[in-house]
Simulated scan of single mutants.
Amino acid sequence: MSHNPAASVRGPAHRVQVGKTPVLDSEDARRLLDSIDTGTLVSLRDRALISLMIYSFAPIGAALGMKVEDVYTQSRRLWVRLREKSDKGHEMPCHHHLGGGFFTSFN
């Protein structure tokens, strides 16, 4: 072939929106967390994971990769350690709504 027959065909425009990740407002977050039944260990685990992601903006991979020792107390404040895909660690204090719940039972 002397030329590419698809050269004149244009594909769809690719648009990247930076910083447009939707965030739950406080009422929606509260409604979501209150809708989770807390009668079983599985539902408590799910509520803890969703709470962690809401209050710390943690991606699901970092939340699932946590170990018990990644929740710790420092200066009377509860902290969490998150590890990203590149094994880069982030340490941050817990939001007061997150710290008063499920995670305090581990310490």
Rank of each mutant, 00 (worst) to 15 (best):
E84W: 02
G101K: 02
L52V: 07
S75F: 05
V9W: 10
G11H: 08
T73A: 05
V42F: 02
C94T: 11
R81P: 04
S51A: 12
P12H: 07
T21H: 03
V68C: 10
H97V: 14
T104P: 10
L52Q: 03
T73D: 08
L49I: 14
K67C: 07
E27K: 14
G11C: 07
L24W: 15
A48P: 06
H14E: 13
V16C: 07
W79D: 01
S56Q: 04
R15V: 14
G89F: 04
A63V: 08
L78S: 04
R77D: 06
R77P: 07
L33A: 04
P5A: 00
M1I: 09
V80R: 02
A13N: 06
M66A: 09
A63H: 01
L41I: 08
L82E: 00
F57V: 05
F103C: 10
Y72H: 13
R31W: 05
G100W: 00
G61W: 00
A13W: 12
D34I: 01
G89E: 13
S26H: 13
P12K: 09
S51V: 00
V16H: 15
R47Q: 15
M92N: 06
G99N: 05
F102Q: 14
F103D: 06
W79I: 02
V68F: 11
K20C: 14
K88N: 08
I54D: 03
V71G: 06
G101V: 02
F103V: 12
F57I: 06
V42T: 15
G19W: 03
D46F: 00
Q17H: 15
I50W: 00
H97W: 10
H97G: 06
F106M: 09
G100R: 14
Y72A: 04
M92D: 11
R47H: 07
G39C: 02
N4Q: 03
R45H: 07
R83H: 12
G99R: 02
M1E: 06
E91Q: 10
R15P: 05
E84D: 08
D28S: 11
